[in-house]
Design a protein around this nucleic acid. Sequence first.
DNA 1: CTGAAAGCGCTTACAG
DNA 2: CTGAAAGCGCTTACAG
Lengths: 344, 344
Amino acid sequence: MPRAKRSRITVKDLAKDLGMSVSTVSRAFYADAVIAETTRKIVLDRAHEIGYRPNPFAQSLITKKTQIVGMVVSDLTNPFYPEVMTRLTSLLQKQGMNVMLASAEQADGTDEAVDLLLSYQPDLMIVLATNLKSHARERCEAAGAPVIFFNRLSEDGLGHGISCDNVAGGRLAASYLAELGHRELLYVSAFPDASTNVERHQGFREEAMRRGFAAPQVIEAGRFTYEAGYEAGLAVKDLPRRPDGVFCANDIVAIGFIEGVQEGIGLRVPGDISVMGYDNIAMAGWPSHRLTTIAQPLEEMMDATVKLASDLATSTDVAQRILHIPPGRLVERNTVMDWRRAND
Amino acid sequence: MPRAKRSRITVKDLAKDLGMSVSTVSRAFYADAVIAETTRKIVLDRAHEIGYRPNPFAQSLITKKTQIVGMVVSDLTNPFYPEVMTRLTSLLQKQGMNVMLASAEQADGTDEAVDLLLSYQPDLMIVLATNLKSHARERCEAAGAPVIFFNRLSEDGLGHGISCDNVAGGRLAASYLAELGHRELLYVSAFPDASTNVERHQGFREEAMRRGFAAPQVIEAGRFTYEAGYEAGLAVKDLPRRPDGVFCANDIVAIGFIEGVQEGIGLRVPGDISVMGYDNIAMAGWPSHRLTTIAQPLEEMMDATVKLASDLATSTDVAQRILHIPPGRLVERNTVMDWRRAND
DNA sequence: CTGAAAGCGCTTACAG
DNA sequence: CTGAAAGCGCTTACAG
């Protein structure tokens, strides 16, 4: 069967079919174009019948809008991101936008991937998980694509950002552990430059000190991965003081940490040491983990992103917007011990 | 700062800059165009200097090639797919192709998402995880985009396909369990129409019966998810005969199954019941799971996909290709008991 | 409210 | 080997 790359229907065809000019037909597809409503309806109906859609490439050659949003991802071993990615994609598609992907697995590959993506003139870029280097962000903006950082903010504080209030989240973790009788706190840090990491640490530390505790000890896991968390768990034995309450940069790190601490040092969670995460990924609720954590307000974060995206798509000039959405609720499960009750 | 949607550099600009015609400049970007090598080098060098890239939209208006591959995904709670997705994206980008995403979270949403994607005239479609309905596949092909099914084949057997030899994998599972002394086998089935599911079951059953065992019992988990596996684990208590060797449709189902069987029925794995998965996702190696499984030959599968993709991109007529790559190796961990040794 | 014409940024026969 | 011209499928001032 010769795949006869059937030449697709064009405005011309549809115009001839309807006995109208191409101008008129074209106008039917633009809500704010001057055209009789009855004419528009005739065109749209017939278009639907014969399966005509304006060629977006030809369109964008003129409108300079592509309806493409570039999505830069990495770190997909953290289940938080695939979920965000697919749900965001669905939401954006409902707005008529299409998502083009650049995978930034290796830091060095990012640039070329971003450039390739930019040649498609995306209306905007959404950066998930990775820390786009400043010059890459600048290239995006020079190419006319404003960038939205999702969940992590840009290092240089530029670009739009959607994030939850991680400082408040960090405080919440410290309060919770403190209230339950923990005294020797530890923060397990992930990627040191990530705003999420920095802010969660900051909130945790502030709240601990406000309560008159020593500054929490810190283990540098270095990355937001299970493996990094696992190594951090092993590293507990080298700490000057044995911690009783641990707050990890996120869930996947926490899960790795717990397994490291159990396997490597034989400590029990929460019997010997309490551990909390951040995100509330699905896995945190599995019987094998039952991780106490702080939920991200994912719904709100995604809605805000889509809202911002369509604002950026329609209006040419939107002031920098950095949204800090209140952190989600505390999700109590089985990895934190209540020492008050234990001592009753 | 008014974001002055800086008008990008065009062929014209570059031509003027170089004192050449646009034709010549244009030719420099096509390997098989007739142009003096020295001229080409001059053009390319200068293009790189001033950051010129041909506008892919204008290009594809003429060439009818877009360098876009549409990727249809769903089921991203299975960590197997995010990994495939990102690695495949990187590989395709290295070939100069760009990946556009359609998320098919809800079965009903798929169609509109696919249509939207098709309006961008992708050179081909890659379907991960989901079972594109036949009519959707037909629409893709009618729009000139051949489709490659990755890991699962199309229900109607049409379209290109890359998959590992799941029948052989199923046999391998049965042999392994049989050799280790298991006698009462169980298959935990996932999405009933998925080719992977059907073939793994088939191989498992064939090998069991070839060895003179009864046909393995079956629990219908229904989906390739943790939750479905968990429910299946609970359902073990309703089985007429207590199984001792279980093969699950994939790893994530196996992990759920194990937790269901432990939590809900109190059976121990592998003490009371042995369990195997399929895929060898990263999580299968974590201390919390240590799942015995069959690895997918992911590298080979992805290479074959990229190869096929670039064949399809260059040649207009490629015969239907369905590749069954030999299954990966058995990965022995801690969820299968060796009853021979146990009885020594 | 509608149509004829110009033009978006390219590629590719066609001449030379 | 290079250039002038036509044209890909659209949109949008400009007339009417």
